[in-house]
Design a binder for these strands. Structure first.
Lengths: 212, 212
DNA sequence: CATTTCGCGATTGTATACGATTATGGAATC
DNA sequence: GATTCCATAATCGTATACAATCGCGAAATG
């Protein structure tokens, strides 16, 4: 694996965990020193992430985690609704015990204290979608998850919003076990719509947490 | 506009035109000299394109335009079918005379001799989708167009396959003028399915053009 | 004559270095 | 005392330079 890939993966993990809050400036020298490499592979990795709008290069100012507007979040979930059901539909016939076990593990991991909800969320969805064998689609969906991860972390920490989400995950998983692709897709669509609505509250509520 | 952005745009244009045939090795020094910059912004731009799998960095060997398998092409059109109707559906209510004129211009441009069919194709679709205001979705769809561009160029050069495609474009445009989003989406889906089938012939036919 | 091995050339990948731009703190002025 | 201006420090973006890797060809060997 290339140096660039390692840096990219390291930063991506932090994004999926929602650790990199919007508005944060990523200093390249720090990242380079932290990972024991030079600036150049760091910049190349950041450019890769910037290609999916996960980061933004501002002229002579550096790399920043962009703040999402309510419309951005709506777009993200609109795209998830467009892509993920299609991925799941194609995945279900190919699901093996390994995929299902991975998904179960992700659900279990999300229960643990100190676990990152958006990261576990992605792990669960990725375990199922992986069976579709759509590499490009996976990368797209991963970037969508990463884009909203800090906001998802926000509203799942605030209240027990993860509980209902977890229940929906369980039902989706059961439909997958049954090999019922259409039911799984329907459940997934409802799941995404609810998540979109919940996230929208973060932006429209009185709290300015989403815009800060 | 940054140096990296200029390089990225230059290479992306060549990709959308289908000029960069799969299997081609992009030599960084050549590109740098050609654009009058150094290797580093070139590499950063290439990394941006590699993030969407439009290019591939191979270890210590350089950057290559990846060859698509039949499955890759099917995935690309599967994703286009998932995303583009959604984009069009959201675009139609916002369409202005400007968007429609842009789309008409793209159709006219595709008729000209020496014009790049995939590039005009993208210009047409982009003109319409732009009204949706979905920046991320646009970037995704653009990368999908770029990925198959050389193959589209292949089968449109071979025969007058562009004629039927052009007719479908006209009908989609008319539905957009009428503000009939659902009809436009239905026509788009048919259009994409036909294009996918046509492209599939490139891979499954006796000619090895797709695998060379 | 085929095959393997060695060495050279070419290209990449990374580090170091430097000019340019921006942010920040303090001093001067109103 | 507040504000503006300037100088300094810090960071970025790009160019240059160098080490590492890969491929290809020639030579040697069976």
């Amino acid at each position: 694996m290339s140096t660039v890939d390692e840096v990219q993966q390291a930063v991506m993990e932090r994004m999926l965990r929602g650790e990199l809050t919007p508005g944060t400036w990523l200093r390249q020298d720090d990242l380079a020193a932290q990972l024991g490499v030079s600036k150049i592979p760091v910049r190349e990795a950041l450019h890769r992430l910037a290609a999916s709008d996960l980061l933004r290069f501002e002229n002579n100012r550096g790399v920043v985690v962009p703040m999402l507007t309510a419309e951005d979040a709506a777009e993200t979930y609109g795209l998830r609704l467009a892509i993920e059901p299609e991925l799941l539909r194609r995945a279900v016939p190919n699901l093996t015990i390994v995929h299902l076990a991975e998904a179960e593990m992700a659900l279990a991991a999300s229960e643990l204290k100190g676990a990152s909800v958006p990261e576990a969320n992605w792990a669960f969805h990725a375990a199922l979608y992986g069976a579709a064998g759509w590499k490009r689609g996976m990368a797209m969906v991963q970037s969508l998850h990463a884009a909203v991860a800090p906001y998802v972390a926000l509203y799942t920490q605030g209240l027990g919003g993860a509980a209902t989400s977890d229940d929906e995950h369980q039902r989706i998983l059961q439909a997958c076990r049954d090999g019922d692709a259409e039911r799984a897709c329907s459940l997934l669509e409802v799941h995404l719509r609810e998540a979109a609505a919940a996230l929208d509250h973060v932006f429209t509520e009185d709290t300015d947490a989403g815009t800060r």
